[in-house]
Computed example of a mutant assay.
Amino acid sequence: MRLTLITALITLVVDQLTKLLVVHGLNLRARGEIDVFPPYLNFRMAWNEGINFGLLSRQDDLMKWILVAIALAISAAVLWWVHRERPRTAGMIAAGLLVGGAIGNVIDRLVYGAVADFLNMSCCGIENPYAFNVADIAIFLGAAALVLIPADKKAG
């Protein structure tokens, strides 16, 4: 359980630090976009009020609180599962990535009213219109690993 909590904390800190540095430090909020290593890596400010790709996006506070509640409930369920099942190291790290990313996006919703997305990557002539953040990467990797990695319990 401790490894899960440490992973979640590291994920949360890295997510929030990158948002502070890019959104505020580089003033991406006002600039809107910064080409870092085009087209492979660009900073494009996007405020996501919904879930992935802006799904369930609405302009009212109710949806924000519903999404916060869902993220907190999922995080609590994952932590309960780790405590109960005691998965191997990979499972504990995956759970920590998912929880840390979810809490990072919850903080955004509480502070900004929306999730601060800023990473944009394109390649090979395909223009990606979407932006994401470190928390989104952690959530994706954590969830994928929890699904794909066998959930064998740790010995003892």
Rank of each mutant, 00 (worst) to 15 (best):
T4E: 01
A145W: 10
P39C: 10
K19V: 14
L9G: 15
G125K: 10
R84Q: 07
D117Q: 12
F53S: 14
E49Q: 11
P39A: 13
G54W: 13
L28G: 02
A151I: 08
P87F: 04
L98M: 05
G104N: 06
I107S: 05
A76P: 06
A73L: 08
L5T: 01
R86F: 04
K19W: 10
E85H: 05
A76L: 15
T89N: 08
V68R: 00
Y112Q: 08
A30F: 11
A73R: 07
R84H: 06
E49M: 06
F43D: 05
R29I: 13
V82I: 15
R58V: 10
L20T: 06
G125C: 13
F53N: 14
F53P: 04
G142K: 00
V68Q: 03
R86Y: 05
Y40S: 06
D117M: 11
E127I: 12
L67R: 00
V23K: 04
L17S: 12
H83P: 00
D61F: 11
V14Q: 07
A143L: 07
N52V: 14
G54M: 07
M45R: 12
C123N: 11
L79V: 13
A155M: 02
A77E: 03
P150R: 12
A77M: 08
G142W: 08
A69P: 10
G156P: 02
W65N: 10
L20I: 08
R58G: 14
R109L: 01
F140G: 01
Y130P: 01
H83D: 03
R31F: 07
M63L: 13
R88M: 09
L21T: 07
E85D: 01
V23I: 15
M63T: 15
G50V: 11
A69E: 09
V111D: 04
Y40P: 05
N42K: 06
A151S: 15
V68P: 01
G125W: 12
K153T: 01
N52K: 10
E127A: 12
A95G: 05
G156F: 04
L62D: 02
L3E: 07
L3H: 03
V14G: 02
V78T: 11
G156Y: 07
D152E: 09
R88T: 02
K64I: 09
G50R: 13
E127R: 13
A69K: 14
I137W: 05
G25V: 11
K153A: 05
A30N: 14
A69Q: 08
F43M: 09
M1W: 11
I51Q: 04
A144R: 06
T18N: 05
I6G: 03
C123T: 12
L3V: 10
G104M: 00
L146S: 05
N133A: 08
W65V: 13
G142M: 02
L110H: 14
T89D: 07
A90T: 15
I137L: 02
S75Y: 00
L55D: 09
A114M: 09
L17G: 11
I66Q: 14
G25H: 12
M92W: 03
K154G: 04
L97I: 08
V99E: 05
L17Q: 09
A71C: 10
C123A: 15
L56T: 15
